[in-house]
């Protein structure tokens, strides 16, 4: 038993060292070499472990190179107290501007207090803060969640010819994306008297939950002409449940995110529309906004990076974006 424990310990330590090394590499690559008189922008990322976010980080890096500014990007590891400490470090380093991917929009106030005291402009991206914090930002760069919902609603309404029964699968209840996307979808569907939202329920963004939910709805026996899901994983779950009972052909399905998996499903004709949130575009726009803020230029309260609808004929184009052939 002792020997087994020892072996386990060794494995754990090795794994830790391995992870540590990787971190270091990432930290190094994130630093762009400084030159004299360059603007220095500190970027507090939410997490380096998120595939989608990695495209935003790429946007930061390319924009920094194009504009010839120096950036330092740090990983907040999805922990707002770590992020808080990183902001302190940025301020001590005397960066010219801060780009913040808020980990918790509710705990942004102290970060803004400190940056304001040091006279450093803050650009927040992706996660929309509430009014009081929003007003204190140089600008917010992001995509309007309601717009994504509207894109879904419009596409499905057109496919249905303005008539039919729709179910909506929510993400995590209370999440800004769940609220915004659902609201946008309903705004559009409400304009069609022939379209009824017959059921709505949550999958907490999870494929497995959406699969069970859809199974139960199918079983309940009411008519379903289309499924509008707050995210692609839920759309995939719904598609799997419908396929299982041979109903996939008769039901239109909409998702959001344009993940590689969803695009694959779309390619196979199982999902009919999804919406792409432009991570790279958000990252790129942040650097531009930060430079303008340092130069004292006026910026809009919200810099909108539009969602792009993805239809089946564009699948390959978007798959290539993810590096999938």
């Amino acid at each position: 038993m002792k020997r087994i424990l020892l072996a386990l310990l060794v494995v754990v330590v090795l794994a830790g060292a391995f992870i540590g090394c990787q971190r270091q590499e990432e930290a190094e690559t994130a630093e762009v070499e400084p030159a004299a008189e360059q603007l220095h922008i500190g970027i507090a990322a939410a997490s380096f472990d998120d595939k989608w976010m990695s495209y935003m980080h790429e946007g930061f890096e390319v924009a920094a190179e194009d504009a010839d500014v120096r950036i330092t990007m740090v990983d907040g590891r999805n922990d707002s107290s770590i992020q808080q400490g990183q902001i302190d470090t940025f301020i001590t380093q005397g960066v010219d501007a801060i780009i913040l991917v808020p980990i918790q929009v509710q705990s942004m106030a102290p970060i803004l207090d400190e940056a304001e005291a040091a006279g450093i402009p803050v650009v927040a991206v992706n996660r929309l803060p509430a009014e009081p914090e929003l007003n204190r930002l140089a600008t917010f760069v992001g995509s309007n969640e309601e717009f994504a919902g509207r894109v879904q609603g419009e596409a499905i309404a057109e496919m249905l010819g303005g008539e039919g029964d729709v179910v909506i699968i929510w993400g995590e209840i209370g999440h800004p994306a769940q609220i915004g996307r659902t609201k946008g979808t309903k705004e559009i569907l409400d304009q069609y008297p022939g379209i009824n939202v017959v059921r709505e329920d949550t999958s907490v963004w999870q494929r497995a939950n959406a699969l069970s939910l859809m199974e139960n709805w199918i079983q309940a026996g009411f008519n379903i002409d289309a499924v509008i899901a707050n995210n692609d994983e839920s759309a995939i779950g719904a598609a799997m449940a419908l396929e299982q009972v041979g109903m996939l052909e008769d039901v239109f399905i909409a998702g959001v995110d344009a993940t590689p998996d969803a695009l694959q499903f779309m390619k196979e004709g199982k999902i009919d529309v999804t919406v792409f949130q432009d991570a790279y575009g958000q990252g790129y726009a942040c650097i531009d906004a930060a430079i303008k803020a340092v130069n004292g230029e006026e910026l809009p309260q919200i810099t909108d990076i539009p969602f792009l609808p993805v239809m089946p004929d564009q699948v390959d184009e978007f798959l290539a974006l993810w590096g999938v052939e």
Binding site: A15, I19, Q22, D49, D50, K51, W52, S54, R207, E233, T259, P260, D261, Q264
Partner: peptide, 14 residues
């Protein structure tokens, strides 16, 4: 949970 994200880089393995 962290290991899961690390080995998959956050995306599903299909």
């Amino acid at each position: 949970r962290g290991v899961g994200f690390l080995i998959t880089k956050g995306r599903p393995i299909d």
